[in-house]
Simulated assay, not measured.
Amino acid sequence: MYDLYSFGLLAFTAFFTIINPLGTMPIFMSMTASLSKTRRKQTAKKATIVAFLTVIAFAFSGQILFNFFGISVNSFRVVGGIIFFMMGWDMLQARLGNFKHTDDEDQLDAYVEDISITPLAIPMICGPGAITNAIILMEEANDYQQKIVLVSVIALVLFITYLVLVGASKITEKLGSTGNKVMMRLMGLIVMVIAVEFFFSGLKPILLGIISNGS
């Protein structure tokens, strides 16, 4: 039982640190600033559900998929960095989410659906770190009890993430239109910096592997 408790604590600490709900919150606020409270809640719900399903899918089959397609986590980091950079550039130019400023329900639904999956669920919440962590911990789970604990911990961390994102709505309302635009540009700059770190943290091992193989 002690081993089960230790495994659960390890999994919770690792996933909470990697997913970092508080770090995701400002970006979520920027992207949903002009949406209604109901729409923001809907976006948070979809993003966390998609992230949960993605993490679980990779936890049970990630290593098989990686080996089958011959890809690595570093490739995920490179692609994630490119997605982050594009998103950060749009935020910096205050161009993110033009669909927000419309009364067309179909366009609003499309916008919510779009940002819920990318970039909020993937790669903001469920990024390369979370995917790698899920694969490693699932391989370390020695029995079904530990596997159940791992799935439960992932669900708990993402539920906490959902609560944090929903709570961000109150902060968004207090900031107002000008405050949200300023925050969007500041977060855009930060996201671009994160993108560069993501990109080069994935690219460096790939290049070193190519150089070592060439020599």
Rank of each mutant, 00 (worst) to 15 (best):
F69S: 09
I19S: 02
A51L: 14
L150D: 01
E197N: 08
A44L: 03
S72D: 08
L53M: 14
T161M: 03
S201L: 04
F12W: 10
F28C: 03
A134D: 01
M184R: 02
T48Y: 00
R39C: 09
S36N: 13
I64A: 11
F52D: 00
L137I: 07
G88S: 02
M183D: 05
T118F: 03
G80Y: 04
N180C: 06
T32C: 12
V151H: 04
R40H: 07
M187V: 08
M31F: 01
V78N: 02
Q107A: 12
I83T: 01
L9R: 10
I122M: 05
E197V: 13
S72L: 09
G214I: 12
P119E: 06
A134R: 04
M124C: 06
K41V: 12
G23Q: 09
M192H: 01
K204C: 01
F199I: 14
I64Y: 07
A155W: 02
L10M: 11
I19L: 07
R95Y: 09
E140L: 14
L186T: 06
L108F: 06
G167F: 09
A11C: 08
G167P: 04
K46Q: 15
S201G: 06
T54N: 03
T38V: 10
V191K: 00
G209A: 14
G70H: 11
T38H: 13
K100E: 08
E139N: 15
L165Y: 06
F199T: 07
N20M: 10
V193H: 01
F12D: 03
A51C: 09
G176H: 02
S6W: 00
Q42E: 12
M87I: 05
M86T: 04
G129C: 07
D143G: 05
S6N: 12
T118L: 15
K100Y: 11
E173T: 08
Q146G: 07
I211Q: 06
L108E: 11
V112G: 03
L92T: 10
D143T: 03
S36W: 12
I64Q: 06
G129T: 07
V157W: 00
V73F: 12
Y144P: 00
T17W: 07
T43P: 01
P205Q: 11
Y144L: 13
S34K: 05
D143K: 04
L175D: 04
